[in-house]
């Protein structure tokens, strides 16, 4: 079996990897903002509840969380699982896990912004929502790009964890090709794919960081 067909087989799983990657970012980032706000809420029960959830999500393996999301509906409620649930559970598991990490990054970002910004906005008559969206949020984004980049890079590699739900992404294919060939070579090919993907991610994040560097 030629290297080219190995690459083709592994590439056929790349779409699924991209799907997990982009959908997770799309859902977990806004969710992370909401969770960060809830975590900073002055309403103690909400803040404590969210703190507890974040603690569990960060303190247990993502692999376990994926299993809980996937099989939970059956074991908890006896609901029969559909085939599509494999993908949905993967996306839900990834999104809530990453939302927990993003929430803490965003919270740190928000809290690092001088209180004077909020005070200036308040005196100028901005509503709380306006203050957050126009003043705090854009500054928070800029400040959190380096840690967010770390998470995004980790996510690229974490997509391979969806193998526990047998969702057929790139690394699952790589392992299957590897087994069929009785060789580890396909795994290294997959490694090259991940590396190139992350190279692109790094370049994109770098561009965004540069685009936001017009102010300090």
């Amino acid at each position: 079996m030629s290297l080219i067909s190995v690459i083709q087989q592994i590439a056929s799983g790349f779409g699924a990897t991209l799907l997990i990657f982009f959908c997770t970012l799309l859902f977990s980032m806004p969710l992370g903002v909401l969770v960060a706000l809830g975590r900073m809420s002055k309403f103690k029960p909400l803040s404590l509840l969210i703190q507890g959830i974040i603690s569990v999500l960060r303190g247990t393996p993502l692999m376990l969380q994926l299993i809980v999301v996937f099989y939970g509906p059956y074991y908890a409620f006896g609901i029969k699982l559909s085939t599509n649930w494999r993908l949905y559970a993967t996306l839900i598991g990834f999104s809530i896990n990453y939302a927990a990490y993003f929430a803490e990054i965003f919270r740190a970002g928000i809290q690092s912004i001088p209180v004077g910004q909020t005070e200036a906005a308040t005196v100028l008559g901005y509503t709380k929502v306006q203050t957050f969206l126009k003043i705090i949020f854009p500054q928070m984004i800029k400040r959190t790009i380096p840690p967010v980049t770390n998470e995004v890079i980790t996510l690229v590699k974490d997509t391979s964890l969806s193998f526990v739900l047998a969702y057929q992404e790139m690394f699952t294919y790589a392992k299957q090709v590897s087994a069929a060939m009785s060789s580890l070579m396909p795994l290294f090919v997959a490694g090259v794919f991940y590396y190139i993907f992350n190279l692109v991610v790094t370049i994109v994040m770098d561009r965004i960081e540069k685009a936001l560097s017009y102010y300090n």
Binding site: P114, G116, A120, P138, Q139, Y215
Partner: peptide
């Protein structure tokens, strides 16, 4: 304000 508190962005 003493610290100006201009919006940097």
């Amino acid at each position: 304000f003493q610290q100006f508190n201009l919006f940097p962005h």
